[in-house]
Computed example of a mutant assay.
Amino acid sequence: MHYVDRLHRLVINQTDWAEAPAHAADVAWLEPMLDARTLALVRLAALVAVGGEVPSYGAAADAAVDAGASAAEVVDVLIGVLPVIGTARVVAAAPRLAMALGYDADALEQEHPG
């Protein structure tokens, strides 16, 4: 399906595919066109933007790394969304993401003060 058709469905809030079994075969338009790595990073950015819960960060970070993203690229997501969502959200997400990557936020502070 062409991206304009997909955009049109979103613009008009066409959600009947989710509610009517007759439209079950019409879900192909929802399949992302992005590669797995990019999609995982985008989903992580969205999680940060909405202030996701702690367990979600583990799943999102794992998905990104499993799709080929490095830990540095996962952290870059925080830097990338900073001008859009603001410092408060990014600072709130940082310890959650650190934990998801296997770091203790308190230990990071001791190892890398100010």
Rank of each mutant, 00 (worst) to 15 (best):
L44I: 13
L30W: 08
A98V: 00
V48P: 00
A67T: 05
V90H: 01
R37G: 03
A45Q: 04
G58E: 13
G102P: 04
L44D: 05
W17H: 12
A71K: 12
P95A: 04
V74D: 05
R37E: 13
G68M: 07
P83M: 12
V90E: 01
A72Y: 06
H23C: 11
A45E: 08
A94K: 01
L101A: 00
E53S: 06
A63R: 00
R89C: 02
A94H: 00
R96Y: 07
A92F: 04
M33N: 07
G58R: 04
S70V: 14
A59S: 11
A61T: 09
P113H: 11
R43K: 12
A46Q: 14
G51S: 06
T87L: 10
I12L: 04
G80N: 02
A92I: 01
A72Q: 13
M99N: 04
A67G: 10
E111F: 11
Q14S: 15
D5C: 06
D62W: 13
V77E: 09
Q110S: 11
A98D: 00
D66S: 14
T15V: 14
N13E: 13
A94C: 00
V50R: 15
G114C: 03
L108D: 13
G86D: 06
L30Y: 12
V84G: 03
P55V: 00
V48D: 02
D26Y: 07
E73L: 07
D35N: 12
P32V: 02
R9P: 01
Y57Q: 00
R37Y: 14
A45H: 09
G52I: 10
A28D: 11
D66M: 08
I79G: 05
R6A: 02
D66K: 08
A49Y: 03
G51C: 04
A107W: 06
A100Y: 00
D16F: 15
M99L: 10
V11G: 06
D16L: 14
R89G: 01
E53H: 02
A105D: 14
A60F: 07
V54G: 05
A20D: 15
P55H: 06
R96C: 01
P55E: 08
P113G: 11
L82F: 14
A61K: 03
D76T: 14
A36W: 05
H112N: 05
V91P: 00
